[in-house]
């Protein structure tokens, strides 16, 4: 049992299970899944579908955080890629043409990589703190997205494009497969190549890594580029789901949710070890929480309050100073006031 509790997925999974259990008690039909027109419907499916963009962003964010960094610009990249894709489609005569949709996707993803590289260059070569370096694109990115859409909400009518975020395959939302593909790619990239080892090494101790011959700059740049492309894919899913691009609101605050998902998943903001599966569960927790709050009829905005407490609790647990204080207090009590301990026990 003790070993089980020490596993990095124990607490995230317990949280997720607790949330699901609450839903089961509160409204039993939370778990019901119906088949309509060959598609699956139900709250669980919704969680997967609406949670997809967050999961994708959080996967990229995990790697960035593992290097002791953070990427604040993902929300802006989500908006920019969605805007660019929709703009490309709306400018063409045949919005549903296969070539056009492909072109839109490729152009947006290339831009997403370029933006990620930009962040990576500022951090690794420029030596600017990640929070500050990515803040630039966070601010300017929204403007760029609106520039692309001319401040309008661009709607497209392209069933092919719409399929990315709203289509279904084998009865499941297509976005679920995208998430799976990215998750597996990230896993393979980090665990089957040496990338994961190098990221953890650089994130733990960059000087020692340099002396062991690791090219930490190249690692940093590629990690930010990967985070960029993840945000780009999330942007495509989001905009295709609603068949429109909103430069102002698409992906708003997704960077914060993504960071939260990563932290809940057990990856420390201090860099080092990272857990992609933990992040996956962390993102699902956030999405389930949102759905739950929505279901029990509380205004969805109140999710924020809950999130605030989750952030605090997780960070306090990760804080060495906090653990030390609690630990010392216990020890102190044991020696100074045994009576109190027994009474409370």
């Amino acid at each position: 049992m003790a070993r089980l509790m020490k596993h990095h997925l124990f607490w995230p999974l317990t949280m997720l299970a607790g949330l699901l259990l609450f839903n089961l008690c509160y409204s039993p039909d939370f778990f019901s899944i119906q088949i309509r027109n060959g598609h699956l419907y139900g709250s669980l499916i919704d969680i997967l579908n609406f949670g997809a963009p967050l999961i994708v962003v959080a996967i990229g964010m995990t790697l960035v955080i593992a290097t002791k960094g953070v990427d604040l610009s993902v929300g802006s990249i989500v908006a920019i890629t969605g805007a660019l894709a929709c703009m490309t489609l709306s400018k063409s005569s045949d919005q549903n043409g296969f070539a056009v949709v492909l072109l839109a996707i490729v152009i947006s993803l290339v831009l997403a990589i370029v933006l990620g590289l930009w962040n990576g260059l500022l951090v690794s070569l420029g030596g600017i703190q990640p929070i500050i370096a990515t803040l630039i694109l966070m601010v300017a990115g929204r403007g760029i997205a609106q520039l692309i859409t001319s401040g309008q909400i661009i709607t497209v009518s392209s069933p092919r494009y719409n399929y990315i975020g709203a289509g279904s395959l084998l009865g499941l939302p297509f976005s679920v497969f995208i998430v799976l593909a990215i998750f597996i790619t990230a896993l393979l990239l980090t665990r089957k190549s040496a990338l994961g080892l190098f990221i953890e090494s650089v994130g733990t101790n960059s000087e020692a890594s340099r002396l062991a011959g690791i090219r930490s700059r190249a690692i940093l740049i590629s990690v930010y580029a990967f985070c960029g492309i993840c945000a780009g894919i999330a942007g495509l899913i989001l905009s295709s789901n609603v068949s429109s691009a909103d430069g102002n609101n698409a992906g708003l605050w997704v960077e914060l949710d993504a960071i939260l998902a990563v932290v809940i998943g057990g990856t420390s903001m201090n860099g080092g070890r990272f857990y992609l599966s933990g992040t996956l569960i962390g993102a699902l927790i956030i999405q389930t929480l949102t759905t739950t709050i929505y279901m029990i009829g509380v205004p969805p905005e109140i999710t924020l309050v809950v999130k605030a407490f989750v952030v605090l609790v997780v960070c306090l647990i990760q804080s060495e100073a906090f653990r030390k204080k609690i630990f010392e207090r216990r020890k102190y009590r044991k020696y100074s006031d045994k009576a109190e301990v027994t009474r409370h026990a």
């Binding site: 960071i259 903001m269 109140i302 309050v305 999130k307 605090l312 060495e320 100073a321």
Partner: peptide, 19 residues
């Protein structure tokens, strides 16, 4: 006192106040 990054603490504060 708990030596947590200001970024994270004020992020939580941001969520809390907005919520």
């Amino acid at each position: 006192y708990f030596n947590i990054q200001p970024f994270i603490v004020t992020l939580a504060g941001m969520f809390l106040a907005r919520g």
